[in-house]
Design a binder for these strands. Structure first.
Lengths: 232, 232
DNA sequence: AACAACTGCAAACGACGTTCGCAGTTTACA
DNA sequence: TGTAAACTGCGAACGTCGTTTGCAGTTGTT
């Protein structure tokens, strides 16, 4: 009951978001580093060696200092991950001009997200945390709402659809990066007849074209258009 | 180049999968614990206190022993997570009888997965690792293929569809558990006009019925039926 | 000049996964 | 039956992690 993370209490010494913490005070010597430099070093580390390599010590070493020094700029590693996230989300800019129908515009946005996940695979391990949303993420969300402006449906449905689009993009990104990383080593495969039959007739006859686009289209139309197409 | 995880090499001292490691040898005293008991304790811990509480020390303490002792039964914490995963996947049994069309049967399977994610939220943080697939996971997969037996499409498409169904179930599960856990504290919201407008007309007019079912239906039909329904 | 607010940094703390060595126990084989 | 090998449990230790703390030095305000 004492260390429960209070969300917006008014009395306790709650940890304030990284977005409201000032970069530096008004007195004292000029900082040797900057928040931007720290975030850039962390992103470079994550891009090249994976998220696990982004330790406070490693980031600090990349900047030529010690781990403890970083806490003059950030209050936790989670803050650093939040900053990294918002920074790369900024790479989604400039947003494509929404010409034509909203559906194709949304599919294009989804592809953009997929490309971002491809460029920064560590994003997949970071976005699912409860975190403090930054300005770039909000701008992206705002832009999605702009694209969906002409769609006549409850706003909550639009929220759901945008979140689901991001989720599907992350699923596809994971599918690409984790293709064939799991093994059946040590299990007796004989007990799974349909699996054996499937492997028997494998011979992958050319993958269906534009799986992402088709998935996003069927998903968004199903979620946002009034009458979902009944199967039949 | 030296510590790259060789997949099926024949020379090196590669770490064998937990599924092929025998529970105990033929000599020596009877073990004080069992793999099942360890996994059960770990799952109980994860269900009640979250995945972060599943440390080797905590699991060992729940069994009344020390952390190092667990390595007589498992070769790593990842092995423990694999065992936990496969064990709760077993809770998907008994598989519902597939009566009626395959689409409704698949939607039912998706709901089953969603319920499992709800019962064991830590599954969401565990399934995305590259891991050794266990017998229960294979059985589930085999059952999905059985349901899709009558569908005329390439096997690879069925693989994609099953994986995507699991992914969508995980997305919905995360949506439920993480409803409103992120905050905009410290960002200036004034710069996002569409977001403000959306909040203005909020008033959530009753959530659309059966979002999961509609999503899965539009997804599976889009992925598995020959001609995806063009919008319009 | 004096004090408060800041800076960098090294050292330490506790928790983590994992390894190691040792003493004791059980089985296989001569 | 005796002995060696293979196993068991376990406490202590190693290295890494995120984070805290104390201290010396620097800057700005009064």
């Amino acid at each position: 009951m004492s260390d429960a993370p209070a969300s917006t209490g008014d009395g306790g010494p709650e940890r304030q978001s990284i977005w409201s913490r000032p970069e530096r005070g008004s007195r004292g010597p000029a900082p040797a580093h900057s928040r931007d430099a720290i975030v850039a070093a962390a992103i470079a580390l994550a891009d090249t060696e994976g998220l696990a390599a982004v330790s406070m010590r490693a980031v600090a070493a990349a900047l030529g200092t010690g781990a403890g020094s970083l806490y003059r700029y950030l209050s936790s590693r989670d803050d650093l991950l939040d900053l990294m996230t918002d920074r790369v989300v900024g790479e989604l800019r400039p947003y494509p001009e929404a010409e034509g129908d909203w559906l194709e515009a949304m599919v294009l946005l989804g592809r953009r997200q997929l490309a971002l996940f491809g460029a920064h695979p560590w994003l997949l391990d970071v976005i699912h945390r409860p975190s403090a949303v930054g300005p770039e993420s909000l701008a992206w969300f705002d832009n999605c709402l702009r694209v969906l402006e002409t769609v006549r449906c409850p706003v909550t449905d639009k929220f759901e659809a945008i979140a689901m689009m991001t989720g599907v993009a992350s699923l596809f990104a994971r599918r690409e990066s984790a293709a064939g990383t799991f093994s059946f080593a040590g299990v007796d495969v004989a007990a799974y007849p349909h699996l054996i039959a499937a492997f028997g007739q494998a011979s992958a006859p050319a993958p269906r074209a534009d799986l992402v686009g088709r998935t996003l289209r069927s998903l968004l139309t199903g979620l946002l258009l009034a009458e979902p197409t009944e199967v039949g």
